[in-house]
Design a protein around this nucleic acid. Sequence first.
DNA 1: CCCTAAACTGAGACTCAGTCTCAACTCGTC
DNA 2: GACGAGTTGAGACTGAGTCTCAGTTTAGGG
Lengths: 166, 166
Amino acid sequence: MPAVAREVDRFQQFLQQQGLKLTSERTALVREIFSTHYHFEADELLFKMKEKSVKISRATVYRTLELLVKSGMVRRVHLGEDHYHYEHVSGNSHHDHLICTTCGGVIEFHDEEIERLQRAICEKKKFTPTFHNLQILGVCESCTRRGETPDAPDRVKMIQATRLRK
Amino acid sequence: MPAVAREVDRFQQFLQQQGLKLTSERTALVREIFSTHYHFEADELLFKMKEKSVKISRATVYRTLELLVKSGMVRRVHLGEDHYHYEHVSGNSHHDHLICTTCGGVIEFHDEEIERLQRAICEKKKFTPTFHNLQILGVCESCTRRGETPDAPDRVKMIQATRLRK
DNA sequence: CCCTAAACTGAGACTCAGTCTCAACTCGTC
DNA sequence: GACGAGTTGAGACTGAGTCTCAGTTTAGGG
């Protein structure tokens, strides 16, 4: 899997620059993150590693995520109304999110015109932007078709059931 | 202060509709919220009530905030990268936020063109939006002038020092 | 190839926002 | 004024995330 190896390399380079070390734990985490797609939570990651019998502590997971965020390889996002989610930033550049409050699904989008207007506003307010975050909450196409009402807790419960602490 | 009284009234009406009761605690909280401006945290509110020697428990503060959110009088927002913040929705309609990562200041803005583009995207993706949330993080004008670098922890520490638990 | 300093790790204690429980206490309606 | 539904406070609890510290690993100079 050359794509994943390239990411490990990228991280390695970042670490070296900072005088930090590439450990087996960090490698394993980067591999896991970049071989799955889209968004994940810290606890999910912890759980997956445990599933694979790779022993990595909660602290290390959080520490590694912090480093990945610093390196720009991973982004921290608020999806919906909860704790943090993370998403990896491989080739795929900036995008924003449509979040379905029924099924929890996430649709990414990018609109250069919106970006441009945001820059214009910052200029007008003499504000120097470093990052932004646009989420639109609502109901996705397939949930609308199934006549779902917003706020179905099913998926949330499912996720919680698979979560394993300690 | 007729404006605040009007808000209490509005809440009263909402409660009645739901078969709920207006208590002295709820009145006190609504008064506090609508007499201060802009954004606040749940703990801040708790602390302010304690300062005024109005005895209201943590649980009641959270419960009342939930009701206010349901009634549409208060909105829950993510400002920066932390826990929840709340803002009241009196006359002032929807807006988004520029958040200064140096001083913690918040500038509100509204741009109808951005709103329109968002609706267009939802339509294209057949997504039914219910709410959205746009934050732009960066450095505000006065912090830029003071040559501040992002991420000054001063204000955060200050807030934490004034916070009082239990 | 080995040594060493600096960096890293895991276990678990800790924090902090937010939720839950339950007995005691209102509110508002009859 | 009495009653039942709704509300409250105290404090236990939860869950995400952070911190600590003793023991372990890495990298790179010799």
